[in-house]
């Protein structure tokens, strides 16, 4: 069912763009900020990153150790469930493959956990194979706190709420466990190209 709006249409300067998933618009040079609560300001000395399984911490990097890991530069399009997309955003960070390379696991899912209590869930296969990073640099500068600094997850092929800000923990699970927004009616997987915004999409 399509309901047409009289007089509404593609505006000037808004050409069709096959880089835009359905229902999204190009935010241009802007970079909106979204989070459910206050921005944490944890001192870097206390910002570690850990990989857990269901019972134990398997790996831990202090902030300095994380900074010393090999970083990759990447330029990607990002898509927020609140409808904006941002093209060619430039990041630097550590591939999740690298963080998990010495961690033998039969896990199927990951729950990403953040400073402040935010969580989001992903299939493990969406975090590996060169599709996800933990980034600490945006546009050549240290990632600002309001955008998730000192370090956030970056999973550009899923809606951006999956790219957890203020990342502190990756928990490897043998089952799927809904994260924060996923328990509030947002889609469990969140593929922007299939417009999986909300549960049931």
């Amino acid at each position: 069912m399509s309901v047409l709006s009289r007089g509404f249409g593609r505006g000037r300067g808004r050409p069709a763009d096959d880089r835009l998933p359905p229902g999204q618009y190009d935010v241009g040079s802007g970079f909106p900020v979204l989070s459910a609560g206050p921005t944490p300001h944890t001192p870097l000395a206390q910002c570690d990153l850990t990989v857990h399984d269901e019972t134990d911490a398997l790996r831990r990097w202090s902030w300095e150790e994380f900074r010393a890991l090999p970083h990759e530069a990447l330029t990607v399009d990002i898509h927020c469930v609140t409808k904006w997309s941002k093209f060619d955003s430039r990041w630097e960070g550590v591939a999740v493959d690298r963080l998990l390379q010495d961690v033998p696991t039969t896990a199927t899912h990951v729950l990403a956990g953040s400073d402040g209590g935010y969580t989001t869930n992903l299939p493990l296969e969406d975090l590996t194979g060169g599709r996800a990073w933990v980034v600490d640099t945006y546009a050549g500068e240290p990632l600002p706190p309001e955008h998730g600094g000192p370090a956030r997850l970056l999973v550009p092929h899923l809606y951006f709420w999956k790219s957890a800000k203020w990342l502190r923990r990756l928990t490897l699970l043998h089952h799927d466990e809904p994260g924060f927004w996923e328990t509030f009616g947002y889609h469990n997987y969140g593929d922007p190209w299939r417009e999986q915004r909300y549960s049931g999409d």
Binding site: Y25, V27, G28, S29, G30, F31, P32, V33, L34, S35, A36, G37, P38, P40, W84, K86, G116, G117
Partner: peptide, 21 residues
Amino acid sequence: LVDLGHDPSAIRIERFGSTGE
């Protein structure tokens, strides 16, 4: 609010508008 001593987990935020459109 956090500086004034409020519990960060008791503060819920909804933002609109942006630095873009």
